[in-house]
């Protein structure tokens, strides 16, 4: 990638923002796995692996997975945030591989929020 000028910076910002909007990049679901040291220590990497397996099995190519740092409440980790196009995103808490698989089947594929594992909704569209 070439060196950026100040104008490039703003163009790139708009471009990334546009691409990140779910409708425009062909994705319908965005899943964020919160993987700081605290998340990994709590088993976040196992959850991440389980999620990747589920996505592969589902043969869906419209699901985007990203990683991030600590979501803030370390005692509720592992955390995963799931945003479906046009819906509030939901952040789940205290996950393990099995719960992740249930959430994938129930929420990501089925559209039903799993209240038992959910911590909060996030209003902003992802």
């Amino acid at each position: 990638m070439a060196r950026l000028t100040a104008e490039d910076l703003i163009k790139l910002k708009e471009k990334v923002k546009n691409e990140n909007a779910l409708s425009k990049d062909g994705y319908t679901v965005k899943i964020t796995v919160h993987l700081g040291t605290c998340g990994i220590a709590a088993g976040g990497d196992v959850v991440y692996e389980a999620l990747k397996e589920e996505i592969e099995e589902s043969k869906r190519d419209d699901i985007k997975v990203v990683i991030s740092g600590c979501a803030g409440m370390c005692s509720s980790e592992p955390n995963v945030t799931i945003g479906r196009i046009g819906e509030d995103a939901v952040i789940y808490r205290d996950l393990d591989a099995e719960k992740m698989r249930k959430i994938f089947q129930g929420h990501v594929l089925g559209g039903e929020i799993l209240n038992d594992y959910a911590m909060a909704r996030i209003k902003e569209p992802v």
Binding site: L12, K13, V16, N20, I67, S68
Partner: peptide
Amino acid sequence: NKGIDPELIDEYIAQDGYQ
């Protein structure tokens, strides 16, 4: 910016990064 992907600079730039 705690929810962005820390390993992608574009994600930071999308949050007004480096402006």
